[in-house]
Amino acid sequence: MRRLRRPGSLLWPAALIALAGTAPVATADPAAAQPIASCAPALAATAVPAGIPMLDWSENVGYDVAGNLWVSRVYRNVVQRYDRSGALTATVPVDFPGAVRSGPDGLLYVVYGDTPTSLVSPGGVVRFDPTAADPKPEVFVSGVRTMPNGAAFDEDGYLYLGASLSGVIRVRPDGTIDTAWTDQAPKGSANGVVVRDRTLYVTTNGGPLGRILRIPIDAPGDVSVVADVSSPVAGVPDFTDDLIIDSAGILYVTTVFGQLVRVDPATGAACAVLSGEPMTSVVATPGQPDQLIAGTEGGAVLRIQLPR
């Protein structure tokens, strides 16, 4: 997620802090205030280097059906396609791009307007053919004034947007917003979104920072807390960004303190498998579930080998 101040300052936007009063009421684990524990370490290497650090901020990462990697360069207002060798093969203009997700129709869906200025110039979602030599984006969703960021599709083709200034938004397969569902979902900050077994897992940073929520798709008002992620510093919460869920149902969450945190949704147990530079996003490498790709605030894209 993009912040209003330089990322290293850890000064959060006033708008997000104010949302603490509107976040869902739920009970968190008191142990969350303790520094997060370490577990079996992962290994990280640079998959795609940053051209200009910070300017090349890699806000989100995702794969298309052909196995090409797409990276949202939020400060450059583009998404970029890289082939399996890491070569840049296409650049598509998208205003302040966020999540990059392959849709059930094989098209690539990209959130746009991931900026506080979406209050004035609304965001939404564009889509395009990711295999085209020169992809042309078309608007799929528009009019989202609450800083859309994360995204995930469910098995029925509904798209869920994590909006930093309002919560989770559900989009029907025809591109219209399901206001009845959205009105029932928790309000406040929402960032990364993943779906498994008719359940959404959402990172939030409104009250408190670093919270992961569980939202049943069929009962969006029945929200519960999975875990509160702490930083390596005692008493200091982390800022959770994107997340994925693996085939075993384990979450991997990226944070501003540079942690890749493993979370078991069944117990809330969390530990850091990697610590380093601030990470913005994460996706599994196709066909290699124990290998992840992560975006960073500096702009480099990391290849992460999970412990076996």
Rank of each mutant, 00 (worst) to 15 (best):
R170K: 13
L10T: 11
N77S: 01
T146L: 04
V261T: 06
S121D: 08
N191I: 09
V261K: 09
V202N: 05
V194L: 10
A248I: 00
R170T: 13
V125Y: 09
D228K: 08
L200M: 10
A87M: 02
P104A: 07
F140W: 14
V141F: 12
Y252D: 03
G67R: 02
G258Y: 05
I212W: 04
L292W: 02
G210D: 10
M279C: 09
R5A: 10
G62I: 04
D242E: 07
V282N: 08
S164N: 15
Y252M: 02
I304W: 09
K136R: 15
V61L: 14
G51M: 01
Q34A: 12
R73E: 01
V120C: 02
L306M: 15
V195I: 12
G162C: 15
G157I: 01
R303Y: 10
A185P: 08
G51A: 05
K136Q: 15
G167T: 05
L161C: 13
D64Q: 01
V301D: 10
A90D: 00
R101W: 04
E138L: 09
G295S: 13
R5K: 08
S85R: 14
V78F: 01
L43E: 13
T203Y: 13
Q80L: 00
G287I: 03
I245S: 08
M147K: 11
I177S: 13
A300Q: 14
Y252H: 14
A14V: 03
V273D: 09
V193F: 08
R84F: 01
V253Y: 14
P289R: 12
V125I: 12
N77H: 03
S164C: 10
L292C: 03
L11H: 07
D222R: 15
R308Q: 14
Y82C: 07
G98A: 04
V79N: 00
V194I: 06
V78Q: 03
A23C: 09
T27Y: 03
D83T: 04
T27N: 04
F96I: 00
S85G: 08
E297R: 06
A234S: 12
A294K: 15
L213T: 07
G167C: 09
V194M: 11
V282I: 15
L55N: 14
T296M: 13
G8F: 02
G103M: 02
L43R: 14
G192H: 12
V48P: 11
V78S: 05
R81V: 00
D105S: 12
A66H: 01
F128M: 09
A269D: 14
A87L: 02
L165Q: 15
T176R: 13
V125H: 12
D105R: 05
S58Q: 08
D174M: 10
L161D: 09
